[in-house]
Design a protein around this nucleic acid. Structure first.
Lengths: 340, 340
DNA sequence: ATGAAAGCGCTAACAA
DNA sequence: TTGTTAGCGCTTTCAT
C-alpha cells in the first residue's frame, strides 16, 4: 500500500478494525494487555500502511518528548564530539533522539540555548562543557533549569557542578596534580602553562592542579599564557612562547590537548622541536594526541564513557545520586622524555 | 513572577486579558495584525510569566516542526563534526533546532535512523556521508524519503546524489584527479593507495580520480590496501604497508585525512619517516592535517561551508536546483616534497 | 482587528 | 480486555 503523505494511528486502527486505543496500546503503550489476535492485526496494518508515530503528538499527549537535549561548547572540538558520540550511543539504546546545540563556550548563548531546548520538552537536558568563573548568568540558568526539573525534566551537568544538579564530574584538578607530579619526577622543573580564558573553570582547575603537583615535585611555573580554548588559541600561545625564546623553560603544559597540538605546531614552525628542546604535555587524550610527533603526554579522560554516563544518569529513576568523579589516567608519551 | 512548571499560551493570554488567538498572533503567528497596545500587553505578560512556546504543540498545530534532522556517519569523525558545525550554525540563524543521528556508515542503520527522524516531522532531513555502492537499501530509503517529501519535508544529500534528491555535491573525483596530477608532477611515480571499504562511494571516487590523475602524469598504482574508513583503519593499513617493506613505492595516498594520519603513525612506528622515506597525501584537510609531522598534503574541502549550504538548500523555496559541486583545493604540504 | 472554536495525532483515564 | 472520550498547547479558519 502506498503510504500517503502521513499515516496516522487512526488510519491503522481503521485498517485493522479496532479502536484507536487498542492500536495505541499495541504500537506504543505499555506492554501486555491486548489479545494476541488483535495485536497481530494491528501490527500487520501498521506494517502495510507504513505507519510511523508522530513524535510531536506523542510528546504532547505524554507531556514529554523522547528527546534528550545536549549542549556542547563546540561540536567540532574532539573533546565535545567524543562526549557527543557516547551520549548518542546511549540515547539510541534507550530509544531517544538527541538534539544537539552549541554554546560557543559563552554563558549568554548557553542560556538562550537552554531556553530553546526546553521548548521541546525533552526528557533531559545535558550540559557538557566548562562552567564559568564569572557566575553572572548562573542565577538565570539555575532558574531555567530548576523550572525544567519542576516540570519533570532531568538535568545533568558534565564537568563541574556548582548549580546543584546531577553532575558527571571530571576529576580535572586531581588528575592534573598527578600529571604535574609525574613530570616533576621525570626531571622537569620549569614550566610554561598554556591555558584557556580565565572564565573557563575546566582550564583553571587543570592549571591549578598541575601547579600544585608540579610544585610538590620541586618545579615552578615560570609563566602562563592564555588564549582561546582551541587549536588556534594554542597555536597563538605557542608562537608567543617561542618568540620569548623559551630560555628559562623545560616544559610546556597546555590545559587541553587541542591547545597543546596547536602549540606544538607553532613551536616546530619556530624551529623548536617538541620533546627535544622542550617537553610538552596536554590533557584529554583526544585521538590526535597519539598521532602528532612526538606522541603527546597527556591525561586520558574516558570521554565517550562520560557521554554515555550522562545519559544513563539522566534516565535513572531518581536524581541526586551523582556518581563519583571520573578519574583521569596519566599517559606519559614521548613528548616528555625523562630529563637527564 | 515565579514561572510555574509550565506556562502556556493560555496563561499569557489570560494575564494580558486578550484571547488565545491574539496572544498567538503576537508571539508566533504571522507579523502585523495586532494593535500596538495589545501587542505590548501580550509581550509584557509573556515576559513576566517567562513564557516559552511548546515546540511539540506548535509542530502539531502546524504539521511540521522547526527542526532539521541531520544524519552523519560518525559524529566523532572530524569530517562529520565539521559539517555538523556548519549545519548547526546555519540552522541556528534560521531559528531551527538540529537533531543529530549517527548511521555508523551502515545502510541498514541509515534507514532505521531516517525512519526515527521522520517521526519528528522535521522541516528537513539532511544526509551527510557517502552513499553505498551496494544499493540494496536504496529503494527503501528512496521510498521513505519520497514519502517524507510528499508530506512537505525537504531532503538534502551531502556528497553523491543518485537518489534524485537535492544534493550538495562534492567534487571528489575531480579534486582527487588534480591531486594525482600534481603529485606526479612533483616526481612521484609509484603509489600505494589506502582506501576505505569498497561500499563507500566517497572513498572509491577519490581512489579512482587519483588513479586517473596520477596515471596521466605517468604514475602507477602499485597496490591498494583497504580498511575501515577511520583513523584506526588507516593505522592498520599503514602497518600492513610497512610490513610489506614499501620497496616499490614512493607515495601513499589515503582517501581521507583521518586514514592518512593513522597511517603516518603506523609508518613512523615502523621506522619509516613520512615525507622522507615515502610521501603521504590525504583528502579533506581536517584540522589535524596541519598538525601532524610533516604537515599533510591533501585536498581542502570547505566542510563547514558544506554544512551551511545543506541547510540553506533545505530552506530554499523550491527543491530541485542543486548548486554546482563543491570543488576541492589541492594543498601541497611537506609530507610530499618534490622528488629529486 | 479580535475572538471563538475546531482540530493536529496521540495517550490515558474511565466505562463497558 | 476493549472502546469512548477528554484533553495536551498551539494555530488557524471563520465569524464578529
Amino acid at each position: 500500500m502506498e503510504p500517503s503523505s502521513s499515516v496516522t494511528l487512526h488510519d491503522v486502527a481503521a485498517e485493522a478494525g479496532v479502536s484507536l486505543a487498542t492500536a495505541s496500546r499495541v504500537l506504543n503503550g505499555s506492554v501486555r494487555k491486548v489479545a494476541e489476535s488483535y495485536r497481530e492485526r494491528v501490527m500487520a496494518a501498521a506494517q502495510r500502511l507504513g505507519y510511523a508515530p508522530n513524535l510531536s503528538a506523542q510528546a504532547m499527549a505524554k507531556g514529554r518528548a523522547n528527546i534528550v537535549g545536549l549542549l556542547v561548547g563546540d561540536i567540532a572540538d574532539p573533546y565535545f564530539s567524543a562526549i557527543t558520540a557516547g551520549a548518542m550511543a546511549a540515547a539510541e539504546e534507550a530509544g531517544l533522539v538527541v538534539t544537539v546545540a552549541v554554546t560557543g563556550r559563552d554563558a549568554d548563548r548557553e542560556l538562550t540555548t537552554v531556553r530553546a531546548l526546553k521548548g521541546q520538552r525533552p526528557r533531559a537536558i545535558l550540559l557538557a562543557g566548562s562552567r564559568f568563573a564569572d557566575a553572572t548568568r548562573d542565577d538565570e540558568l539555575s532558574a531555567e533549569l530548576e523550572n525544567f526539573r519542576a516540570g519533570g525534566g532531568r538535568v545533568v551537568f558534565v564537568s563541574q557542578s556548582g548549580l546543584g544538579f546531577d553532575t558527571v564530574r571530571i576529576g580535572n584538578e586531581e588528575a592534573a596534580t598527578a600529571l604535574g607530579e609525574r613530570l616533576a619526577e621525570l626531571g622537569y622543573r620549569r614550566v610554561a602553562i598554556i591555558a584557556g580564558p580565565h572564565r573557563l573553570i575546566t582550564s583553571t582547575d587543570r592549571a591549578r592542579g598541575f601547579t600544585r603537583g608540579f610544585g610538590r615535585g620541586g618545579g615552578d611555573v615560570v609563566t602562563t599564557v592564555r588564549g582561546d580554548f582551541t587549536r588556534d588559541g594554542g597555536f597563538a600561545a605557542g608562537e608567543k612562547l617561542a618568540a620569548s625564546g623559551l630560555s628559562d623553560v623545560d616544559l610546556i603544559f597546555a590545559t587541553s590537548d587541542i591547545m597543546a597540538v596547536g602549540a606544538m605546531s607553532a613551536l616546530r614552525r619556530a624551529g623548536i622541536i617538541p620533546g627535544e628542546h622542550v617537553g610538552v604535555a596536554g590533557f584529554d587524550d583526544i585521538s590526535t594526541a597519539r598521532d602528532v610527533t612526538p606522541p603527546l603526554t597527556t591525561v586520558a579522560i574516558p570521554l565517550e564513557e562520560i557521554g554515555r554516563s550522562a545519559v544513563t544518569q539522566a534516565l535513572l529513576d531518581e536524581p541526586g545520586d551523582s556518581p563519583a568523579p571520573v578519574t583521569g589516567t596519566v599517559l606519559i608519551r614521548e613528548s616528555t622524555p625523562a630529563r637527564t
